[in-house]
Simulated assay, not measured.
Amino acid sequence: MAIGARLKKCPQILTLGFKPNFSDYTSKERELLLNTPRILYPTAFYADLFNAMGKPTFPSYHTYKFAMDKIKQTAMFQMMNIPHPRTRIFYGKLSRERILAEFCFPFIAKIPRGSAQGKGVFLIQTPEHLDAHLSLKGPAYIQEYLPFDRDMRIIVMGREAVFSYWRVARGSDFKTNVSRGGEIRFDPLPREALDLARATAQTCGWDDVGIDIALAEGKFYVLEGNMKYGTKGFKKAGIDYKDFLCRMVLEGKV
């Protein structure tokens, strides 16, 4: 059974929908939730609670905990020696001076929490760009600029890379996000990138994630994990994502 809506069209799975007040579920629904061996798509709210009571979920508790948090993801990549662009997080009034002492223009600045679809990613080319970015609230997440005009989105479900494609930036835009105009291409991906995506997801405890990987200067880098990945790539490939996901669950692959 499921709480979140991703499997709502799968007739073999009972989807209850999200209710922040657990008491709003019927007594029968509460009994099912407490006694079923695993909960599918528990939502970020209930993933914590089911983890505390020892109940397995899909996606995993860790998948939810790292969602849209670049600071936590970067810390994990650094701890586990996962190849990742050189990244530093800066706090406080001396951030500007410390950033300029450690990074040369151009470099990348990102809003570290809650941003998606490339909206919180900035190319910092001048001191004025940096000042404008530092006027935003929160810590400064600064990353080295790597020269590439395309990257790879690799969807990992369970323990396998189940779908992948290239994202190619349009024109002079440095962002490859499909939501920002990036082009989807299905040219074959390097085996090394697919293996790196699988290993990264397994190391981090993520079992439903879009891993973004770039090849720059002859080296593969994991850029980030996207737990709320888009499905336009599936659509362009002629795959019904919800049907695909339903089959993955029913066939025991996740």
Rank of each mutant, 00 (worst) to 15 (best):
Y41N: 13
N21W: 05
Q12W: 06
K110E: 01
K110G: 02
T63V: 06
Q73T: 14
L16D: 06
K93M: 14
L34V: 04
R6T: 15
K72P: 08
K72S: 12
G17W: 08
I39K: 03
G17K: 04
K65I: 13
F58C: 05
R96D: 11
D48G: 10
Y25T: 06
A67I: 11
M80G: 04
T87D: 11
I82C: 06
P56N: 12
P85G: 05
L7C: 04
S60R: 03
E102R: 09
Q12H: 12
M79N: 11
F22W: 05
I108K: 01
D69I: 09
K70L: 04
F103E: 01
C104W: 04
F105Q: 02
P56Q: 08
K19C: 07
A5C: 13
T36M: 06
S23D: 12
N81R: 11
G17Q: 09
L100F: 09
R6M: 13
L94N: 15
S95Q: 12
R30I: 07
K9P: 01
P112K: 00
F105A: 01
M76D: 09
T63D: 08
D24Y: 07
F50T: 03
N51K: 14
T26W: 05
F50Y: 12
P106D: 02
I13G: 09
T15D: 10
R96W: 12
F50V: 12
Y41E: 15
K93R: 15
L100G: 02
F50G: 11
I108G: 00
Y41V: 13
R38F: 11
D69L: 10
P42H: 04
T43H: 03
T43E: 07
F50H: 03
A52K: 15
P85D: 13
I71H: 03
G92D: 05
I39E: 04
L94R: 14
F18D: 01
F107T: 00
A47M: 10
M68K: 10
A109V: 00
N81C: 09
F66R: 08
I89W: 04
Y64Q: 03
L16P: 06
K19H: 13
T15C: 15
H62I: 07
I108Y: 00
Y61E: 07
A101M: 11
Q78F: 04
P20K: 11
S60E: 08
R96P: 15
K110Y: 00
G92Q: 10
Q78P: 08
K72G: 11
K8C: 13
F107H: 01
R98I: 13
P59K: 04
M80D: 09
L94F: 14
N35R: 13
P112H: 01
C10P: 02
P59W: 02
A109S: 00
P20G: 07
P37T: 15
P56A: 13
T15W: 05
P85V: 04
M80I: 06
G54S: 09
Y41S: 13
R30L: 02
Y41C: 14
I99G: 07
T87P: 09
R6L: 13
P59V: 06
L14R: 08
Y64M: 07
R6W: 10
E102T: 14
T74R: 03
R38G: 05
F18Q: 05
F103T: 02
Y25G: 03
S23V: 12
A101I: 05
K65Y: 03
I13H: 02
L40Q: 06
L94K: 15
